[in-house]
Structures are given as C-alpha cells and as structure tokens.
Deep mutational scan, measured.
Amino acid sequence: VTLFVALYDYEARTEDDLSFHKGSKFQILNSSEGDWWEARSLTTGETGYIPSNYVAPV
C-alpha cells in the first residue's frame, strides 16, 4: 500500500472532494483520473477526491 501525506491544507469545493489538513495521510484508491485522485483518509476513514499536487509519498 502506497501512503501519501498532505503538503498543504485543502478545503473541499464539491461533495465528492475531501477536506484535509497538512500532515494528513491517505491511501490512494485510484490515481488514473489525472490530477484528482480517489483516496481514503487514514485520519477520518472518509473516501473522496484529492488534488494530487497537494500530496507526496510518505
């Protein structure tokens, strides 16, 4: 499992996005959609889309 960590805070703009804070960790579920990845937050357990340029591999 590849884990990613948030580099910045992000406020969701749609109900499909995940809001998160810098330092939040994610499991990436689908990275084939270009700049928006489907991810599960390891902090909240919620699933949604995150901007790929806001995260980096742990």
Rank of each mutant, 00 (worst) to 15 (best):
V1I: 12
T2M: 13
T2E: 12
T2A: 11
T2Q: 13
T2W: 11
L3Y: 12
F4L: 04
F4N: 01
F4I: 04
V5F: 09
V5Q: 07
V5E: 11
V5G: 02
A6P: 01
A6I: 02
A6R: 00
L7F: 03
Y8G: 05
Y8W: 12
D9N: 07
D9R: 03
Y10W: 08
Y10R: 03
Y10T: 00
Y10C: 05
Y10N: 02
E11K: 10
E11M: 10
E11D: 10
E11C: 14
E11Y: 09
E11T: 12
A12T: 04
A12R: 08
A12Y: 02
R13P: 07
R13W: 08
R13E: 11
T14L: 10
T14W: 14
T14A: 12
T14K: 13
T14P: 03
E15G: 13
E15S: 14
E15F: 10
E15M: 11
E15A: 13
E15L: 11
E15V: 12
D16V: 13
D16I: 14
D16Q: 14
D16Y: 15
D17L: 10
D17S: 14
D17N: 10
L18H: 02
L18M: 13
L18A: 01
S19Q: 04
S19D: 04
S19T: 09
S19P: 05
F20A: 01
F20K: 00
F20N: 00
F20Q: 00
F20R: 00
H21M: 12
H21D: 09
H21Y: 11
K22C: 08
K22N: 04
G23N: 05
G23T: 02
G23V: 01
G23W: 04
S24C: 14
S24M: 14
S24R: 03
S24L: 05
S24W: 15
S24K: 03
K25W: 15
K25R: 12
K25V: 15
K25P: 05
K25G: 05
K25D: 03
K25I: 15
F26A: 00
F26V: 04
F26I: 05
F26C: 04
Q27V: 15
Q27L: 14
I28Q: 01
I28P: 03
L29N: 05
L29H: 05
L29D: 05
L29R: 04
L29A: 05
L29T: 07
N30T: 08
S31E: 09
S32W: 10
S32C: 13
S32H: 10
E33Q: 13
E33P: 11
G34S: 13
G34M: 11
D35Q: 11
D35N: 09
D35M: 11
W36G: 02
W37I: 06
W37T: 02
W37M: 06
W37G: 00
E38F: 15
E38Q: 13
A39W: 01
A39C: 03
A39S: 02
A39K: 00
R40V: 12
R40C: 09
R40P: 00
R40M: 12
S41C: 14
S41G: 03
S41P: 01
S41K: 12
S41Y: 06
S41T: 04
L42W: 07
L42D: 04
T43Q: 11
T43I: 10
T43P: 05
T44P: 00
T44F: 03
T44M: 02
G45H: 06
G45D: 06
E46Q: 12
E46R: 10
T47I: 14
G48T: 01
G48S: 01
G48L: 03
G48V: 03
G48D: 00
I50Q: 01
I50K: 00
P51S: 04
P51L: 07
P51H: 07
P51C: 10
N53K: 12
N53M: 11
N53Q: 11
N53Y: 10
Y54H: 09
Y54N: 04
Y54V: 05
V55P: 00
V55W: 02
V55T: 03
V55Q: 00
V55F: 10
A56W: 09
A56C: 09
A56T: 12
A56G: 08
A56P: 01
P57F: 06
P57E: 09
V58K: 04
